[in-house]
């Protein structure tokens, strides 16, 4: 189970990185084409705002949770005994998982409705909307799975995952 979650997380993390690098490349091309050839990329603005920003943020959520990359005020808990600390961590994870599970369900429904009704933005380019909601759902589901999985993990395993330095493989 842990292995499957990890592989999925890494796959979507790379997709998130790809989206980030794509934003960088597309904007650079857009500026170059606008300046040098007076021909900006007409689709760039919408494509970035609709799809790439969503992919960049939601897809790596599971990975970020694995690294415990979300900042906390750990000032007060640091003085507590390790057992209490790990219980607080578990409760926090459960609450966060519940919150984002609800959100994930809402977005799964949105994706389903959008796909079923063929929702799209029509103009010179046609943008289908369900992939956007599907990306949000995928990221949130991974976050929830990781947060729940962490509840059952030992403090040592958690620390090892969080301190993982070799992010490239």
């Amino acid at each position: 189970m842990g292995k499957i979650i990890r592989v999925c997380e890494d796959a979507t993390r790379y997709a998130g990185i790809a989206a980030t690098l794509a934003i960088m490349a597309i904007i650079a091309c857009d500026v170059l084409f606008r300046y040098a050839f007076n021909a900006p990329l007409a689709w760039a603005y919408e494509f970035i705002a609709l799809y790439l920003m969503a992919a960049l943020f939601f897809l790596p959520l599971g990975y970020v949770q694995r690294c415990q990359g979300n900042v906390a005020v750990d000032l007060f808990v640091r003085v507590l005994p390790a057992t209490i600390r790990s219980w607080l961590f578990r409760v926090g994870n459960l609450l966060a998982a519940a919150t984002f599970a609800v959100t994930g369900m809402v977005f799964a429904e949105k994706a389903w409705d959008a796909a079923a009704s063929g929702e799209e933005i029509i103009g010179p380019y046609v943008w289908t909307t369900w992939p956007i909601y599907a990306v949000v759902t995928l990221g949130l589901v991974q976050f929830v799975l990781r947060a729940l999985y962490q509840v059952g993990q030992s403090a040592t395993t958690l620390q090892r995952d969080a301190a993982e330095e070799a992010h490239g493989e």
Partner: peptide, 17 residues
Amino acid sequence: GSAKAAVMQRVGAVPVQ
């Protein structure tokens, strides 16, 4: 928006977002 971009293209200007 794309309709206004189209108008600019028709008069030979370059629409930018």
